[in-house]
């Protein structure tokens, strides 16, 4: 049997997914990146290797997420795609006919508008990270509430309080103020959910035509409080797909499958990568005042990639970008 791997290396989590030739999801893995993407990728690969039977042959591998170039260097990827495209592809595969994708992750949030199965428009938060998963994490920790109970607690609310959602610093002081006035916890949490949704729709969803079916994915989709706030605000049913937290990886796997159909062979280096010895080193290039910190990745003492230089002097020797059109 032939399987395809999708790897999504994000700021908070690293996700690995295995799909079969009918694009059904066989295995999923969601682990924390913890600032060590290389280790997380190797750990993910090891997990898949141990899970699958020996007759599964990996036909292709795709990467996405902010660490997509790093992971493609390490693993050997057939497709390297940005997370917006990957999320859109996964959404339209798993929920046919979807017209709007709401995605809130750890550090970013985006909205994707699809029409006839194709991305028609998208937006991503730009200068402010208010209203992403990290902020909810922080607030739950401050209230000494496990993040898993955040949503169910918010659902118990009957009269959500109004909280300023424009800026996370203001939101926090507003929450403390309401809490000291004596509002109960579930009303405050529900108010926070509504503030977040309001902020998201005003900033990220600004000017976009939101039509159903609407799906909600990314790590924050686990929070039923946010889901209900979206439904209340949009007046539409919000669907949470089964694999909501690994959708990027699913998209990457689907894209890899499409790419391999075109090229015929895979660039995947094989599961041996999980045990290989990767070393990242960096040096400061002092040839101009930009003083770029160039990163150098080596596998078994051999340099396989360099990046992070502005002029391309160091990276050009190794990288070859593919033309999209």
């Amino acid at each position: 049997m032939r399987g395809y791997l999708g790897v999504d290396v994000g700021s908070v989590s690293t996700n690995v997914v295995l799909i079969d030739e009918q694009e059904r999801v066989l295995e999923t893995l969601y682990i924390r990146t913890q600032g060590q993407p290389v280790k997380a990728i190797q750990k993910g690969l090891e997990f898949i290797r141990d899970k699958i039977s020996t007759d599964v042959e990996i036909g292709g591998l795709g990467t996405t997420g902010s660490g997509r170039h790093l992971s493609s260097v390490i693993l050997g990827a057939d497709s390297v795609k940005n997370e917006i495209t990957a999320h859109a592809v996964a959404a339209s595969k798993l929920v046919p006919g979807v017209q709007t994708v709401l995605e809130i992750g750890g550090q970013d949030s985006k909205i994707i508008i699809l029409r006839n199965g194709v991305v028609a428009d998208f937006a991503m938060n730009t200068v402010c990270a208010a209203g992403t998963g990290s902020f909810l994490d922080q607030q739950a920790a401050r209230l000494n509430l496990p993040i898993e109970e955040f949503g169910p607690t918010a659902l118990k609310s009957t009269t959500p309080v109004r909280i300023a959602g424009r800026c996370s610093v203001f939101a926090e002081s507003d929450m403390i103020h309401k809490q000291q006035m004596g509002h109960n916890l579930s009303d405050i949490l529900a108010g926070l959910c509504e503030a977040m949704v309001r902020n998201y729709l005003n900033n990220v969803g600004k000017g976009k035509e939101i039509l159903g079916p609407v799906i909600f994915q990314g790590g924050v989709a686990a929070n039923v409080g946010i889901k209900r706030a979206f439904e209340k605000s949009l007046g539409l049913e919000v669907i949470i797909p089964e694999h909501f937290n690994v959708m990027g990886a699913v998209g990457a796997a689907v894209l890899a499958k499409e790419e391999v159909t075109k090229t015929g062979t895979t660039k995947f280096k094989g599961f041996k990568v999980a045990d290989a010895d990767f070393k990242a080193a960096s040096f400061e290039c002092s040839d101009c005042p930009n003083l770029c910190e160039v990163i150098e990745m080596s596998e078994a003492e051999k340099i396989i990639a360099r990046w992070n230089d502005k002029c391309g002097k160091w990276s050009n020797a190794v990288a070859h970008r593919k033309k999209i059109s």
């Binding site: 940005n82 194709v118 991305v119 059109s325």
Partner: peptide
């Protein structure tokens, strides 16, 4: 990332 996503959108279209 954003440019790539926009170009992808246009390429598909």
């Amino acid at each position: 990332t954003r440019l790539e996503a926009f170009v992808d959108l246009l390429a598909r279209k």
